[in-house]
Design a protein around this nucleic acid. Structure first.
Length: 1151
RNA sequence: AGUCUCGUAGCUCAGUUGGUUAGAGCACUACACUGAUAAUGUAGGGGUCGGCGGUUCAAAUCCGCCCGAGACUACCA
């Protein structure tokens, strides 16, 4: 039995999704697609691991569609594309989720709940929505190996991380330092920026602020001359003004920071609190906020201490960079910070919005401060506690260190006890001191007063500013130096920048801009996190910090523990077994491991966990348990990645950590191509959020519109890296426009191919023997293949999708199928008909292969529906076929151009008909086209028949340009003339627009013409201008660009008869349809007599009968039709209206 | 605050190296077609190309500033 093409009642993309998914599962199609390519060149893809502790959203469909598209595409291109899934399982959100579920806080860990149970809860929490993720992955058609994912909490995974850290340690890239982090003395804990960004944390508070006077030193070893160019002023008579909202940090000041490009002034005035004459330096833009303009006229001689208005005089000005290096005396000489302090340094972040334009730098209490101080080699002000540890001036409870808590030696050598003792032990914020209230005098005030008394304060006032508070205690936080482990990324900064330039970023700007800038401003990677649920830092230290070890494998750990047992620091080795299921590398188990140092001292693990970004950045190696399960050669099979894709928010996340670890450990990029996709917003452009309830449920969308429409919409609507405004109506539009059209085209094909038994068994008809329109659509198809192939290869899925859409709608459906319809149902099974079938079949089959990466389900259905009959491919899925190859020999650009010309002409004629009320069914005699050149005439002639039949016209007449009935219009060829004439362009344009018909003829005939512009003769050649026909008197005319079409609107008697014949055909077809005849049924027709109809029949009877499969056609007198009503065969009489105002009876029955 | 991206019709988007009527689809209105028919075509309205300034004979396009949206990084005297 001949197989039939499946025909469907209607398009149901959801059902297609489900059925095709089932086929894939039944046939293991994904595995097959891999097997098929085994041994071929690998195309390496890395899955950026999602965290399954949150539900997947529609944006995940977006990100995963992009990943899937290129993996499928490359697979079709013959590469071996393995795709290992992964799960990101560590991190704060997991901890917070667990705490919320169990109703506990961090403090309860170890008391209300054992750390053991806590970790168990984390493992469960992190996989909470795994099933949902797996379901979405399958439903949306994302092919990734879910059976063997890498999971970041597995011991094997962690072991690879330790190995990598060990490598970094060996290279000296791992070190302990400190960073300035938000710290809550009230809660005694550091805070993450995440916690700081919780609503309500930033509050307006009123604090005492102080502008301090920093006296310039007499000796200036760094300055060759006075930066202000003044010789008569001694340095020691000058001072620098700096403002602070936290006067308690002033004793820790070690530098002052100016903006290199900001202008500064030296101002002569008096100290408002002492009346002493001084010269102060401050930012010029801020001059008047300290010195009202009017006071510049006050007399210095008349000033008396206590006067409200203080005179001032600007002596000179200079740039900030000129001040760099200026040394000053320590403001509050309590503690000696050592060499290099008390200098003016430069920093980009300095503004002149408030303050003095000069920033007081206390490196221990500000992140910016710390950074610029390090850059300039300025030391922080630190003290040493009893244990010999470096400490800032403030301890962890928020007070200045008590002298008795400090190292005696240090106190003796570096502390001015007399000055410091008055302040030691005081809390820097009253909120930290149980014995104080906000009404009591704050340390800020005390210090400000002390400065005032010493003549070192210029302005003291209350100031309201926004300051972060601890979300748990509601008390202000401090920025505080905290111990941290770092990776010295700055050591390979240049290398990272260099390697980044070899990465293909989509879009390019993210790579060079956002990522590039990030690398330019690279700082060392702070690895430390004070948490529970994460990868532990594998470093053990002796208590004095003099000896340490970095463990880089479980085996090493095992051996070290054995040594430790021998030394008596441990009693048993819980890591003795080689079974990775038998132990756990997480806290708290690992914290119970104590090792022994070379000197025989006990070593304790550094309690920090590492940044979870290290987990994901290490996935290229850890997913394969490198180097324990695979060696370096094997690693190179899957490193670096050819392609990764993730949201643009990963720039500083995953993209960075992949790149950093790749560079640090392997001196290599980690990925060659990266697509960073934008956000998915709601249809109004707002971010989707639970709070707003504007999120789109991916299951609902896929359930309603099917996975293909959803994917296609997301990819085609905007470039992946732009934000997508997700509008469900758009998905429906894709369903209708693209899949609906394609479905209709397929249905059309299937209908007739089934009738004719076309199964693509015949030899391919040679291209040159095919009809013009066949050659055209095949040319367009091959152009499309090339275009789509290039777009995918360039990681431009949107371009590919749009090109396919355009082809399906504009070319295939709206032109090829429309014009070729009758070739499919009319006539014998001739070679022309076979050519039509082969052509349409080829288009559909090729489309299925082109669109397979984007709409994998529909494409597969289309492919298998076709292939089940033709058996052209031996595989049972489009995803097992190769990507189509463009046949250059079939591409005929001239043909494509002239078909476009034909389409344009048709559209113009239809428009003319419309305007003149001449329906298409009314045949008309001719159209006239002025041929601009012989080439154009030739092109049109080649497609003449298509045009004529499409617009129902008998002939085309070409008018030569010399024809003087044409009314023409001339305008300059701007691009060419503009370059030539420059500023005279405007004049010439004006002159040309005023050209008479005679002048236009002159330039046409002579090839050039002289025009006078500003009494200068300029020669214009014919190529400098564009001449178009504007009108043909007596005709209805339309023009578009260079093309002009005129229509002969005369309806002759003969044309009218022909129209009647066509009307009749139309009515008969309608009735056939109404009565549900098969398209192949032959019929007998009887119509009521009418003289006009009779005349029309006389000429067109054969045509009418042929079109409608009528075997007998007769005209019957009015009333006679009813006579045969008694016949069983009879169908009811219908009324038709083919001639204006006359209704005729008609009867149609099957033969 | 800094860095980056984006801003074109009611909506979603095109718009080549600057070149003169700024395009397409959707939606809306009218008409047509009817052997693809729960499809299709044609026509129409609708734009200070975010704003201002500059370069140029010529700017949606190049430059500067500003406004708006978003992301990331910060939160600071």
């Amino acid at each position: 039995m001949v197989k039939k093409y499946s025909e469907y009642k209607q398009l149901d993309l959801t059902a297609i999704g489900e059925q095709v998914l089932k086929n894939w599962e039944d046939n293991n199609t994904f595995e097959e697609s891999l097997k098929l390519r085994q041994g071929k060149t690998p195309y390496v893809f890395y899955e950026g691991p999602p965290s399954a502790n949150g539900q997947p959203g529609i944006h995940h469909v977006m990100a995963r569609a992009i990943k899937d598209i290129f993996c499928r595409y490359k697979s079709q291109k013959g590469f071996y594309v393995t795709r290992k899934a992964g799960w990101d399982t560590h991190g704060l959100p997991v901890e917070l989720g667990v705490e919320k579920n169990l109703g506990i806080t961090k403090e309860d860990i170890g008391t209300k709940i054992s750390v053991d149970d806590y970790n168990k809860a984390c493992k469960e929490e992190v996989m909470k929505y795994k099933d949902m993720w797996d379901r979405l992955t399958k439903l949306m058609g994302y092919w990734v190996d879910l059976e063997n994912p890498y999971i970041t909490f597995k011991n094997e995974y962690i072991e690879t991380l330790w190995y990598l850290l060990g490598e970094l340690y060996k290279k000296g890239y791992l070190y302990k330092g400190y960073t300035i982090q938000p710290f809550s003395p009230a809660a005694g804990t550091g805070l993450s920026s995440h916690e700081l960004n919780m609503p309500g944390c930033y509050k307006d508070v009123k604090d005492t602020t102080c502008v301090a006077i920093f006296k310039v030193k007499a000796e200036q070893p760094n300055m060759k001359s006075c930066p202000f160019g003044l010789n008569d002023i001694k340095p020691e008579d000058c001072s620098v003004l700096a403002w602070t909202t936290t006067p308690w940090t002033l004793p820790s000041n070690t530098a002052l920071c100016v903006g290199p490009n900001i202008e500064y002034v030296l101002v002569k005035t008096f100290n408002p609190y002492s009346g002493a004459p001084i010269n102060v330096i401050l930012g010029k833009p801020l001059l008047n906020s300290f010195f009202p303009e009017k006071n510049s006229e006050l007399s210095f001689e008349d000033y008396k201490f206590g006067d409200k208005e203080i005179p001032f005089k600007v002596l000179a000005s200079c740039k900030g960079k000129d001040l760099i290096g200026l040394e000053y005396e320590q403001l509050l000489p309590w503690v000696n910070p050592g060499e290099g302090a008390f200098r003016v340094i430069g920093g980009d972040f300095v503004t002149t919005e408030d303050g003095t334009g000069i920033v007081h730098i206390a490196p221990t209490f500000g992140a910016d401060d710390d950074r610029v101080a390090k850059q300039s080699g300025v030391p922080p002000l630190v003290m040493f506690d009893k244990e010999g540890k470096r400490q800032p001036m403030v301890d962890r409870s928020g007070k200045f260190f008590k002298i008795e808590d400090l190292d005696e030696e240090f106190v003796k050598n570096n502390i001015n006890t007399d000055a410091y003792k008055a302040f030691a032990g005081k809390f820097v914020k009253n909120a930290y001191d149980k014995n104080l209230t906000e009404k009591d005098m704050s340390l800020d005030v005390e210090i400000a007063i002390a400065l005032k008394e010493e003549g070192k304060a210029f302005k003291i006032e209350k100031h309201t500013h926004n300051y972060p508070h601890c979300w748990r205690t509601d008390k202000p936080i401090l920025y505080y130096p905290m111990d941290s482990w770092f990776i010295r990324t700055t050591a390979v900064k240049e290398r990272m920048i260099g390697l980044n330039k070899t990465i293909n970023w989509k879009p390019e700007a993210t790579g060079s801009g956002r990522f590039g800038n990030w690398l330019e401003n690279l700082v060392d990677w702070n690895l430390s996190r004070s948490r529970y649920w994460g990868t532990p830092l594998p470093i053990w230290r002796t208590e004095d910090g003099l000896e340490e070890i970095c463990i880089s494998s479980v085996e090493q750990l095992r051996n070290e523990i054995d040594k430790s047992i021998e030394a008596g620091f441990m009693s048993e080795n819980k890591y003795a077994s080689k079974d990775y299921e038998s132990f756990d590398l997480h806290r708290p188990y690992i914290d119970n491991v104590y090792l022994v140092s070379k000197e025989g001292k006990k070593m304790t693990r550094e309690t920090d966990l590492i940044d979870v970004w290290f987990d994901s950045g290490a996935m290229p190696y850890a997913q394969h348990h490198y180097p324990f399960d695979i060696n370096k050669e094997q690693l190179q099979q899957s490193f670096p990645a050819d392609f990764i894709a993730e949201g643009v928010d990963q720039t500083r996340g995953w993209f960075f950590t992949l790149h950093a670890i790749g560079t640090l450990v392997f001196d290599s990029i980690a990925f060659k191509n990266v697509v960073s996709n934008g956000l998915v917003l709601d249809k109004n452009g707002n971010k989707m959020s639970k709070r707003l309830g504007n999120g789109v449920d991916p299951f609902e969308t896929i359930g309603k519109y099917g996975p293909d429409a959803t994917r296609w919409y997301m990819i085609s609507n905007s470039q992946p890296w732009e934000n997508l405004k997700f509008d469900i109506e758009g998905v429906d539009e894709i369903r209708r426009k693209l899949f609906g059209t394609l479905y209709n085209t397929y249905s059309f094909f299937a209908l007739y191919a089934n009738i004719d038994g076309f199964a693509y068994k015949e030899e391919n008809i040679k291209n040159e023997e095919r009809a013009e329109i066949d050659r055209w659509i095949l040319s367009e198809l091959n152009s499309l293949i090339e275009n789509v192939d290039n777009s995918y290869a360039d990681y431009e899925p949107t371009r590919a999708a749009r090109a396919i859409q355009n082809f399906v709608d504009e070319y295939l459906s709206n032109w090829y199928v429309r014009l070729c319809r009758r070739r499919f149902w009319k006539g014998e099974y001739s070679s022309d008909k076979i050519s039509a079938y082969q052509t349409l079949y080829t288009c559909l089959e090729t489309l299925s292969r082109l669109m397979a990466p984007i709409s994998p389900f529909f494409a597969d259905r289309l492919f298998t529906d076709l292939n089940n009959v033709s058996g052209r491919f031996s595989v049972n899925s489009v995803h097992l076929t190769d990507f189509p190859e463009s046949d250059k020999a079939i591409i005929d650009k001239a043909l494509e151009e002239r078909m476009q010309l034909a389409q344009k002409i048709c559209s113009m004629v239809l428009s003319l008909r419309k305007r003149n009320n001449l329906k298409v069914r009314q045949p008309l005699q001719k159209i006239m086209i002025p041929a601009t050149n012989p080439e154009m005439e030739k092109q049109i002639l080649a497609v003449r028949d298509l045009i004529l039949s499409e617009v129902n016209i008998k002939e085309i007449e070409f008018l030569s340009q010399e024809n003087n009935v044409l009314v023409k219009k001339i305008k300059p060829n701007f691009k060419q003339l503009g370059a030539k004439l420059g500023s005279k362009m405007k004049h010439v344009a004006g002159v040309l627009s005023a050209f008479t018909q005679e002048q236009i003829s002159e330039i046409e005939n002579n090839g050039s013409i002289f025009v006078e512009i500003e009494s200068e003769n300029i020669e214009l050649s014919i190529s400098d201008v564009e001449i178009v026909t504007q009108d043909i008197p007596g005709w209805v005319v339309m023009n578009e660009g260079v093309l002009t079409v005129a229509l002969d609107t005369t309806v002759t008697e003969s044309l009218r008869k022909e129209c009647i014949a066509r009307e009749l055909v139309n009515r008969i077809q309608n009735i056939r349809k109404e009565q549900n005849f098969e398209v192949t049924d032959n019929i007998i027709v009887e119509i009521e007599y009418n003289s006009l109809l009779e005349e029309a029949l006389a000429e067109h009877q054969d045509y009418i009968m042929g079109e409608t499969l009528t075997k007998e056609l007769s005209l019957v007198k009015h009333g006679d039709i009813s006579i045969i009503m008694g016949d069983q065969n009879t169908e009811p009489i219908s009324k038709i209206d083919i001639i204006e105002g006359i209704e005729l009876d008609i009867n149609i029955r099957k033969v």
